[in-house]
Amino acid sequence: MNTPGAPYGPVAVSAELDGRLSRWLWLVKWLLVIPHWIVLFFLWIAFFVVTVIAFFAILFTERFPRGLFDFNLGVLRWSWRVSYYSYGALGTDRYPPFSLGPEPDYPARLDIAYPERLSRSTVLVKWWLLAIPQYLVIAFFTSGVHAGWWSSGLITLLALIAGFAVAFTDRYPRDLFALIVGLNRWVLRVAAYASLMTDAYPPFRLDQGGHEPGTADGR
């Protein structure tokens, strides 16, 4: 797995496309992930509460408490795996684990470098004022983020196109895969920044492909 903190930034998003995908399983994945959506609904409530607590912790101590950071990272990881399995990518038929851990063997992975210090002044404005331009961009990608999965928007449209391609050609177009992962990568970078987990402003850049640029796999 990519090590965060490399030149590509503190948020490392990677994904591997299954070598063979079922032609028709994607039609019922909305049903299969319902248990995950139920759990994630409550996890995202907790995520919001933890972020509020972290806000005050950063304001007074310049630190995001490690245990709270790890919990929020776990929620983002879980959400990314469910999204990748379902209509955020349809990139794997491996059912996502019910886990907050890193799960390095799962084909969708996320890591965020733990910051030793965070800016007190930036924490006051980053999640609303500074992030507004990013929100406007990712709203086009997602039409909003709901309980950790991307709902409608460009990403879901492209994933459905990929699903039809798999159904009729038995192939997931590689260029489409690279674009979909790149869009999800942008969303996850913004999510990490807006939830106070990093001071590194997300780049206005679409880094496509299954691996972060600047790594051995991402070239």
Rank of each mutant, 00 (worst) to 15 (best):
F41V: 06
L43M: 09
W44A: 08
I45T: 10
I45P: 01
A46Y: 02
F48T: 11
F48K: 08
V49G: 01
V49Q: 00
V50Q: 00
V50I: 11
V50H: 01
V52T: 01
V52E: 00
V52W: 01
I53A: 12
A54D: 13
F55I: 06
F56I: 06
F56W: 11
A57K: 09
L59S: 07
F60T: 14
F60W: 12
T61F: 10
E62D: 15
E62Q: 15
R63L: 02
P65Q: 08
R66P: 02
L68R: 13
L68M: 14
D70S: 13
D70Y: 02
F71T: 09
F71Y: 15
F71W: 04
L73T: 07
G74Q: 13
G74K: 12
G74E: 14
L76M: 15
L76T: 08
R77L: 09
W78N: 08
S79F: 03
S79M: 04
W80C: 02
W80S: 04
V82S: 02
V82D: 01
Y84E: 06
Y84S: 09
Y85H: 07
S86T: 07
Y87V: 08
L90R: 04
G91N: 10
T92L: 12
D93N: 14
Y95E: 04
P96M: 06
P97M: 02
P102D: 15
E103G: 00
E103I: 00
P104D: 05
Y106E: 06
Y106D: 05
P107C: 09
A108F: 04
R109D: 00
D111V: 05
I112Y: 09
A113C: 01
A113N: 01
A113V: 00
Y114V: 04
L118S: 06
S119A: 11
R120N: 12
R120C: 07
R120K: 15
R120I: 13
T122D: 05
T122I: 10
V123F: 04
V123N: 15
V125Y: 07
V125Q: 00
W128S: 11
A131T: 09
A131I: 11
A131N: 11
I132F: 15
I132N: 11
P133C: 14
Q134E: 09
Y135V: 12
L136Y: 09
V137N: 06
I138Y: 07
A139M: 11
T142P: 04
T142W: 08
